[in-house]
Amino acid sequence: MDRNTLLLFAGIGGLLLLASLIGWLLKYRAGPGPQPVIDNLNARINAWWVMVLVIGFAFLFGYTGVVVLFYCVSFYALREFMTLTPTRRSDYPALVAAFYFALPMQYLLIGIGWYGLFAIFIPVYLFLLLPILSSLGGDTTRFLERTSKVQWGLMIAVYCISSVPALLTLEIAGYEGRNLLLIAWLVIVVQISDVLQYVCGKLAGKHKIAPKLSPSKTVEGFFGGVALATLIGASLYWITPFAFWQAGLFALLVCLLGFAGGLVMSAIKRDRGVKDWGHMIEGHGGMLDRLDSVCFAAPVFFHMVRYWWG
């Protein structure tokens, strides 16, 4: 790892240390007994430690480490998505294709850096293959709905998430060998935007921004979180190939997309009558609860960077 990467991880470690300290102080001041909001905050902070350590560990192994990490992330996300979306017995071949063919193939293509195929593999080839497989069973009940669900799950959990490691395939002049930092920048900005929206909302939130979709999100949280995260993204321009103002604009873009992603994924959860996608990350819910914003930010970020810099 080069100096910038170490500096970045040291910074994140310091931030988490501060968060843990605040969480501990809040708990100490509140006294013994369960405090739902504070306990959840501390669970979230602890989960962040684990997530940062896992990402740091993957970074140690470079390109391969990151591709394998996001393969696992996509697997868990796809599994959460498919578990919550009802399919019928005749969808079995399509689901087998999703888990055992599309998922490994997408990451293999990213591993070998074949942009021409990984960019269209799921949106074109799987888009056509899945309904073909589903039709084999001869079951027409809610056919369009069922095939759409499998396709949508693949797009969100595999295609969109795989745009993060796809950043490694970009060849940016003057930025050779540092693409891992671009991933770090994207993940930091999107996630810190989520965290700051949560913090600003808890501290100053009064007006609900989308009461039907996501009752915990507030106008104050949205503006405060996005503004602060944009500022942080801009001031981290030194780890990116961008100038200060470019980093700022990109940060604003991914924060807005991330926010919208949170709302869309929340609409799906509410329609299915659940609060969380899963239970694997203590305090956060499932993998998709943590990554809903990344799903929407990563593909657009990847393609724009590739268009102007790649």
Binding site: L95, V96, Y100
Partner: peptide, 18 residues
């Protein structure tokens, strides 16, 4: 819940659903 989707009758390969 859901195991019938993981291992549908007559299928050999299980699906990794929760």
């Amino acid at each position: 819940a859901n195991l019938n989707r993981v291992m549908p009758k007559g299928r050999a390969l299980p699906l990794p659903l929760l």
